[in-house]
Design a protein around this nucleic acid. Structure first.
Lengths: 337, 337
DNA sequence: CTTGGCACTCGGGAACACAGAGTGCCAGAC
DNA sequence: GTCTGGCACTCTGTGTTCCCGAGTGCCAAG
């Protein structure tokens, strides 16, 4: 039913519509693409494609526009991810190379991606789940307060202020720090709860209240931050595009960490390059938008995801190429450090 | 020339225009405000106010609209900062009270302010300049790399990865850490360069290369981060307001740290509640917007500034009240920790 | 199955008229 | 001298009508 020529017609419609932003008619198609058939034939094909739900006309007597289903078919079967030019690759590399710490890496990445795709970029911080403990530090701030700092192998630093039950002297803190470090060093974060479960019992009785307080904060910080941090950039790029749905809703969604989280993350395979088109999106208010996302991280350890959000009418091959490339470079950078 | 009644007329125009978003005419003014004179008289006053540049008409035979100069006069002489309701105060307090660390404080503050004013909120991180060193930590990551962490009394944590010239053993690092902490503890950040200037000379010769490397990173991080970190929230609130100038420009400006910095900061008195109206603003692209900002920080030590950005047509008394209140509460929270 | 022809539909822009809000000005009242 | 009511005038925005053109669907012939 859907033969090769019809697919070619669909591809042509998507490409033309993406580049012109106007409904495309049979005559224009015949002119701009060498399909080898007349407009009338194309019209027949278009009627079929419309009946099957791949395209639609905004009004009678207007050209056709791809539906979400049409874009989906295009992405799955009719397009190839477009690699970046070598100039672009160079630019990415040099831009990311200058990063000094994990915050810097994430910030540079999100800006780079926004500029490259001219859309809104979203980057998730490397998840704690797959990281290991590099160091634990306890810094006395005053007699009854100390700061607890956790440094992971991905360079991420978690900090918490702990209110102490009693006045505690420096020596006990130093001792506990040593104990914590020897028992946790190199330990995966998911393994931390097990490791520390019986720790208080192995300590002298007078250290136990202190240890218990600190450990509860430690565990809490691991759980709490399970809603990972996410940043975005390039909101200005939304101003040009006109959404079917209000711009306001999109901006609101962007400021909801949880929503972004699910947009990037709802996939079993963390590393896959995924595309979510328009109504495939679970959130009302983001109906008119598509999300292209990929995982990053060194080798088999996928750390987190990044991607872009833009209007459904986007250049998927180019966008997918950019996202994939940036994900790879970020992985390299992180693996090197 | 500008007598009391003309000022009353100007105030009425500003208030009506802010609430209705439509040019206001003489008849409407006479109806809605009890000015005690007839529309004809108001027309005469309006003609004078227009000649002096306080108001303007978009087109002949339309009502009047305040100019930037008119808003300025309104803010300076015709309005009083409106205090928040006690319900709002309670909400602020409880919302900010739950913060766990400095990042959390800043994030909560910016969201709170955005929600409260229904505009874009901007918050600057506590400046390093007025902070003191609480603790310096050196964490070996591998043989030739270590992480340098600086904790300030405001709870801010600066981290940098240092590439070492030589393989360095744990003991030397521990020694240097001790030296650094004893000499820097409680020292104001601006005083750090002086304090460490002659430090290498006071160390045994074999420690000097290591010390020099670390100190250069330390100094660099102080200078580098002098462009302070700034965050914003509530961009969605821009979607409703229609700007004379493009929304795009505003969003772009918001993502430029440097621009935001200057918007909040260009004032000699860090603690003042300042208002910058429309064209008083140094940046093209932010012409149609006003900025209301205030300083925060404990007592005489002003730490940084926060504020909101919105359309020139905003409710200044309410906005100024909200900004001032939030600044005070944040100061309290920070002073307590 | 493809193609050219043809009648039909509908959106969008141009031309036009009109009501309504608001102004400026003037002459008279207080 | 200042305020007020009246009046003519000037716009903008809106609604109406009309028409062009792009695009379609259908049909009969190749």
């Amino acid at each position: 039913m859907v033969d090769d020529r019809k697919l070619a017609v669909l591809r042509a419609i998507v490409e033309d519509y993406v580049s012109t932003n106007e409904p495309v008619g049979s005559k224009a198609l015949a002119d701009r693409h060498s399909l080898g058939v007349s407009p009338a034939t194309i019209r027949n094909d278009m009627a079929v494609l419309e009946e099957q739900g791949y395209i639609a006309q905004p009004h009678t007597s207007a050209g056709r526009v791809p539906t979400d289903k049409g874009y989906r078919l295009f992405v799955d079967r009719l397009s190839q991810v477009k690699p970046l030019s070598s100039a672009e690759r160079k630019a990415i590399e040099s831009f990311l190379a200058g990063a000094v710490d994990i915050d810097d890496v994430v910030m540079r990445t999100v800006r780079l991606l926004a500029q490259l795709t001219r859309q809104v970029a979203v980057v998730q911080y490397p998840t704690l789940t797959n990281s290991t403990v590099r160091h634990v530090e306890l810094v006395p701030l005053s007699e009854r307060r100390l700061m607890f700092v956790l440094i992971t192998n991905t360079g991420r630093v978690e900090q918490r202020v702990v209110e102490l039950p009693d006045v505690v002297d420096e020596q006990r803190v130093a001792h506990l720090r040593a104990v914590l470090n020897t028992s946790l060093d190199g330990c995966g974060l998911t393994g931390v709860p097990d490791k520390v479960a019986d720790l208080p019992e192995r300590l002298p009785a007078e250290d136990r209240p202190l240890a218990a307080t600190i450990l509860s904060v430690l565990l809490e910080s691991l759980v709490d931050r399970h809603d990972e941090k996410i940043v975005f950039a390039g909101a200005a790029n939304l101003a040009g595009a006109d959404f079917t749905v209000g711009l306001r809703d999109v901006l609101e969604a962007l400021e909801e960490q949880v929503v972004l989280m699910r947009l990037l993350g709802e996939t079993s395979d963390l590393s896959a390059l995924t595309v979510r088109i328009g109504s495939e999106n679970p959130y009302t208010g983001l109906q008119g938008t598509s999300i292209v996302a990929a995982g990053y991280g060194s080798g088999d350890k996928q750390l987190a995801r990044l991607g872009v959000l833009g209007p459904t009418r986007m250049d998927y091959p180019v966008t997918m190429g950019a996202v994939r490339a940036v994900a790879r470079y970020v992985s390299q950078i992180l693996a090197a450090s």
